[in-house]
């Protein structure tokens, strides 16, 4: 089970002008946890006719590419003066419009290879399917268009309660004036719907020049509607929680069972037969009347032996 450390940048595009350079630059700027992202658009069922169905059956998981990893040698790390051990994760961003598309279930195995799964909801139906479906989604990445603002607020709030995190990228603010306005509108929309909780900030960097120093990013978040602590948490503790929840989802539900054993060579007066006798013992012990000696137990023992309850040989009480 991996855990995120330090500042996190959970979206560096794999379709990058120079992926290794971007990762090394992010690490040298101060980010310690990085996720390399690949975008996948699952085709909808309407477009596919009978011919395409055959093709789809042949290549099930081929829509979802293999996770991309980056090998960093210690010489690279030294060149960029990186001393702390980096944590590099893989992430996939899925977008699809048709909830009745079979591709999601078919490529479920391929999707599970990734450490983080992100999802772009195009409409209410897909959002609902993902929230209740078999695919565990960790991050919701919203596109700032009119369809997003019509998403049901109750669904967004319920996804928040399920520990799903919303992502706001900051590199569109750097590149394009139009995109900057859209990102600000999106962040204000999130502020209005869910009080800007569960928000993580990522870079969505397509080249090394889109990355910024972490404390600068914290400063920008103030303009996106987050408070000072929330903006620091957005690249810090919220991102850690997102990675932790993601790895917990991969592992599945944790269960534990409790077994109570009373050791056989314990003092006679400490053995209880049933809950009622245990309660009586505790009452008398608390008032201080009871002294743990063999002489007293005979006289002051108020515990009645109930023969109906079974006691095992080893002393395990069966309820």
């Amino acid at each position: 089970m991996f855990r995120a450390k330090g500042f996190c940048d959970l979206n560096i595009e794999a379709e990058n002008s120079n992926l290794k350079e971007s990762v090394l630059k992010a690490l040298s700027l101060g980010y310690q946890t990085i996720a390399i992202n690949q975008n996948v658009t699952l085709p909808s069922l309407e477009k596919s006719g009978s011919k395409k169905r055959k093709g789809a059956e042949e290549g099930n998981g081929s829509i979802v590419p293999v996770p991309v990893t980056v090998n960093l040698s210690s010489a690279d790390l030294k060149r960029y003066k990186i001393t702390r051990e980096p944590v590099i994760l893989t992430r996939i961003t899925i977008s699809y419009t048709d909830p009745s598309s079979p591709y999601l279930l078919k490529s479920a195995d391929a999707i599970r290879q990734y450490d983080l799964i992100a999802f772009v909801p195009e409409n209410d139906a897909t959002l609902k399917q993902v929230m209740t479906g078999k695919i565990d989604v960790d991050i919701i990445s919203l596109i700032p268009n009119s369809a997003t603002y019509q998403l049901s607020r109750s669904l967004l709030k319920s996804s928040m309660e399920r520990d799903v995190y919303f992502e706001i990228p900051y590199s569109p603010c750097i590149t394009d004036v139009h995109a900057r306005k859209q990102i600000i509108m999106l962040s204000h929309f999130l502020h209005r719907t869910c009080k800007s909780s569960n928000i993580i900030i990522t870079s969505k960097a397509k080249c090394p020049t889109h990355l910024r120093y972490p404390y600068d990013v914290i400063n920008i978040c103030q303009f996106l509607g987050l408070s000072e602590i929330a903006s620091k948490a957005a690249i810090g503790t919220m991102a850690h929680n997102a990675v932790y929840c993601a790895s917990a989802r991969r592992r599945g539900v944790s269960k534990c069972a409790v077994q109570i054993t009373v050791s056989p060579d314990a003092d006679e007066c400490k053995k209880f037969v049933g809950i009622e006798s245990a309660e009586e013992y505790m009452k008398s012990y608390k008032t201080g009347k009871r002294k743990l000696s063999e002489k007293c137990k005979a006289k002051k023992k108020k515990i009645k032996v109930d023969k109906s309850n079974e006691v095992d040989d080893s002393g395990v009480i069966k309820f």
């Binding site: 750097i174 020049t209 120093y213 600068d216 990013v217 400063n219 103030q222 303009f223």
Partner: peptide, 29 residues
């Protein structure tokens, strides 16, 4: 806060018709 945000989000400036890419990093404040 505004100056720092403006410097962070700036990617290029215009000078005499040429677009010059500049990246600012505020190391200490």
């Amino acid at each position: 806060a505004k100056v720092r945000a403006a410097l962070t989000l700036c990617s290029a400036t215009m000078l005499e018709g040429a677009i010059i890419p500049i990246i600012y990093t505020v190391e200490q404040a």
